[in-house]
């Protein structure tokens, strides 16, 4: 089984965010980066499928040099090789643009076609949730989103999809297919020293946007159809509610609020 996992590097979740001078994006100085969370779960799913059925896991990531750290982390956790699309101005593309680059890199990757392409449901920074779905369209492959579980069947795959309100859906798809993975279903593994040392010898193929376009003129991203107008920090609100009634009633009310209003449970 050959599985390609598309991974995005995003600003650290708890980073103190400042908006840059033009209010077009956050100030990236002094920010640390990490692997997008749902992409980490996509990688975990891929590694578990490989452990069960054999094959290879290829990491695909686009962005400037710093993305190399996230790629190494994925290799350390067990991916076999990586493709790094080098681009310093990725923020200039919209989801369609990024997906065309990823699609081109998948098409021109040597050897056999992938059996599965996985990516996270959405990115922690922009949260558009589009890239994976567009990628499927560009590659002309079937897709399913919000996937929690993947099982290999004789002819294709069986997946568990999360719907709204605690509902789930079981689907069967032919392979190859593109799946976007929901966070939280499996347990992520920790990176190990052995993994990092082994990762040093694993192949990271670097391609530029120009390379991709030379091989496949169709890879040239169209002018962005979506443009970021401006970004701002969310305004904070503090409200206090006193839950009255007997302790049992108050506890029940608290549970309900945590479950349905705050959605913390």
């Amino acid at each position: 089984m050959k599985i390609i996992v598309a991974i995005k590097q995003v600003p650290e979740r708890d980073a103190r965010i400042r908006i840059d001078a033009e209010a077009k994006w956050i100030d990236l100085r002094d920010v640390e980066f990490m692997m997008n969370e749902s992409d980490a779960y996509a990688l975990e799913e891929a590694l578990q499928l490989k452990e069960a059925h054999g094959g290879e896991v290829v990491v695909l990531s686009a962005g400037p040099e710093r993305v190399g750290k996230t790629i190494r982390e994925a290799l350390a956790k067990g991916a076999d090789r990586a493709i790094h699309i080098e681009s310093d101005d990725l923020a200039g593309y919209d989801a369609l643009g990024v997906a065309s680059l990823l699609a081109a890199a998948i098409r021109e990757d040597d050897g056999e076609d992938p059996d599965l392409i996985l990516t996270g449901l959405q990115s922690d920074d922009l949260g558009l949730g589009q890239t994976g779905v567009i990628l499927a369209e560009l590659l002309n492959l079937p897709h399913a989103s919000l996937i929690l579980k993947i099982e290999k069947t004789g002819s294709g795959i069986k997946v568990l999809r999360e719907l709204e309100d605690g509902w789930f859906q079981h689907l069967e798809l032919p392979a190859p297919a593109v799946l976007t993975i929901q966070s939280g279903n499996s347990k992520l593994r920790y990176a190990t020293l052995m993994g990092i040392k082994r990762a040093k010898t694993k192949e990271v193929r670097r391609v530029t946007v120009a390379d991709l376009i030379t091989v496949d003129p169709g890879a040239k991203p169209a002018d962005p159809v979506v443009q970021l107008d401006r970004v701002s920090l969310p305004s904070k609100q503090r409200t206090t509610q006193i839950l009255s009634g007997s302790p049992a009633e108050a506890a029940a009310a608290l549970v309900e609020k945590l479950q349905f209003e705050v959605r913390a449970l």
């Binding site: 347990k187 992520l188 920790y190 190990t192 020293l193 052995m194």
Partner: peptide, 15 residues
């Protein structure tokens, strides 16, 4: 260091 230890609390701590 070889990943042989699998423990949900430990993994949570390391992550």
């Amino acid at each position: 260091n070889t990943g042989a230890w699998e423990d949900s609390h430990g993994t949570k701590l390391f992550l």
